[in-house]
Design a protein around this nucleic acid. Structure first.
Length: 210
DNA sequence: AGCCAGGGTCTAA
DNA sequence: TTAGACCATGGC
């Protein structure tokens, strides 16, 4: 069985260094909410025309109806608009400046995020890693499925997180790139061409598609 | 036509 | 604490 680092190295060798979610912290927050139980392609289509204006102040100025209308194609518009608005408020409380998080501990920030309705574990962790650069491995549906295909039997998301965190440096960049690599493997590669011989996990995965 | 998509919340047992 | 219903929409 591969270690967490082994999984990372295989993915890196197969797909190369993946892109970062976004350098703009609010774009990460906005998209992290939109993508909940929603296809990434829908998120990109929905966001494309907004990218220029996307900022907490812009969201704060919109009416509820207008915000719901803008994000409607991603579904759950009532819940997601409320969450996005709350995240914008939260970020404005830090002057929309990631420097202003520097004195706050990661677990405190995580508690603050999870206290926002509509922000659960995965969304909080995505924001911590990609927007605030805090080290925390992000467990999502693809991570669970990939590890399951590879034959691991983790009892909980926390066990999965420890599996990676204990064999890799405590480094936000590594966890962020690794998370994106898992998505690339599952969505861009394995889903497009299931059971392929060039799979970095061929044999180990029993050639089952993720 | 249905099923699913990078989730989260609420409730019942 | 955990399983299951529910939330909305679009793409395939």
């Amino acid at each position: 069985m591969l270690t967490g680092e082994g999984v990372y190295q295989k993915l890196l060798a197969a797909y190369g260094k993946p892109r970062w979610w976004s350098d703009d912290p609010f774009v990460v927050m906005f998209q992290a909410v939109l993508v909940q139980n929603t296809a990434w392609s829908s998120v990109e289509r929905t966001c494309a025309p907004l990218m220029d204006s996307l900022a907490p102040e812009y969201i704060a100025r919109l009416t509820d109806g207008r915000l719901e209308e803008l994000i409607a194609p991603c579904g759950f518009k009532k819940a997601k608009s409320r969450t996005i608005r709350a995240l914008a408020e939260w970020f404005m409380g830090y002057d929309c400046d990631r420097e202003h998080f520097s004195d706050i501990g990661t677990d405190t920030l995580r508690r603050e995020l999870m206290a926002i309705r509509g922000v659960g574990e995965e969304t909080a962790d995505v924001i911590l890693v990609y927007a605030i650069y805090r080290p925390r491995f992000i467990v999502d549906a693809y991570t669970r499925r990939l590890l399951e295909r590879l034959g691991y039997g983790f009892a909980s998301d926390d066990a999965i997180r420890r599996f990676f965190e204990e064999s890799l440096p405590r480094d936000a960049e590594i966890y962020g790139r690794l998370h994106w690599l898992i998505l690339e493997h599952c969505i861009a590669a394995c889903r497009k061409k299931p059971n392929c011989e060039s799979c970095p996990f061929a044999e180990m995965c029993g050639f089952k598609a993720v």
